[in-house]
């Protein structure tokens, strides 16, 4: 578990920008923060040091009473997304404090971005694991099937972890070492090089390194 502060964000989409030398860079635009500290967790009380933050304001009428009661101490309304960041010293933060992009990141920083990848549904082994499959024509009777999945009388079972068809995507994915190309504090926007996991409007956790 990284003991580093980060922010929550939302993927806006991808585009292309040009550096001054004329190099085209594919970038992802992330709306990031402000995150409000909702709770401090300490070794003494919860057994570990962390801060709990909320992102993306939610009307109090849309949240239930326990959730509103929990967010009341911060006094900044309720949030759609609530997550924790492990920090070494939670006492640096106050409940109700807003953390902005510029507090945590600067241009040129290397970050890790965690999100939920796009769901692909139930997929076969060719798409899911990149199996080659067989030829489609010339009398081939082996197209996209997984082929043999093990031996016969011994061990009389399929070994665990055998790659077979199943549900693909919609899982947590971390893209490591993403470079920050630009920060726009007035719009709470991070512009990072390359892609990040998940669909547009998807929740992202951005960790400093």
């Amino acid at each position: 578990m990284p003991k580093k502060i980060g922010l929550l964000g939302k993927k806006i989409g991808m585009t292309r920008i040009y550096s001054e030398e004329g190099v085209a860079i594919a970038v992802t635009v992330i709306e990031s923060g402000p995150c409000v500290v909702l709770q401090k967790k300490t070794v003494a009380k919860e057994g570990y040091n962390a801060i709990q933050v909320g992102f993306d304001a939610k009307k109090e009428s849309r949240a239930n009473k326990p959730a509103n009661g929990h967010a009341k101490a911060a006094g900044k309304g309720n949030f759609y997304h609530i997550k924790e960041f492990r920090v070494s010293d939670p006492e640096q933060y106050q409940v109700g404090q807003e953390i902005h992009v510029t507090d945590v990141f600067k241009v040129g920083d290397i970050i890790d971005v965690t999100g939920t990848s796009k769901g692909r549904g139930f997929q076969g082994v060719v798409k899911r694991y990149g199996f080659k499959g067989g030829r489609m024509t010339h009398g081939s009777m082996f197209h996209r099937a997984p082929g043999s999945i093990g031996c016969s009388a011994w061990p009389s079972r399929v070994i665990k972890g055998k790659r077979l068809p199943g549900h693909m995507g919609a899982s947590q994915v971390t893209k490591k070492s993403v470079t920050i190309v630009d920060i726009r504090p007035e719009q709470n926007v991070l512009v990072v090089k390359g892609g990040v996991p998940g669909a547009k409007q998807g929740l992202l956790q951005i960790f400093t390194k």
């Binding site: 920008i17 040009y18 635009v29």
Partner: peptide, 12 residues
Amino acid sequence: MNVLEQIEKENI
């Protein structure tokens, strides 16, 4: 305006 459109507008 959308931030994405704005960034594109600056680069176009």
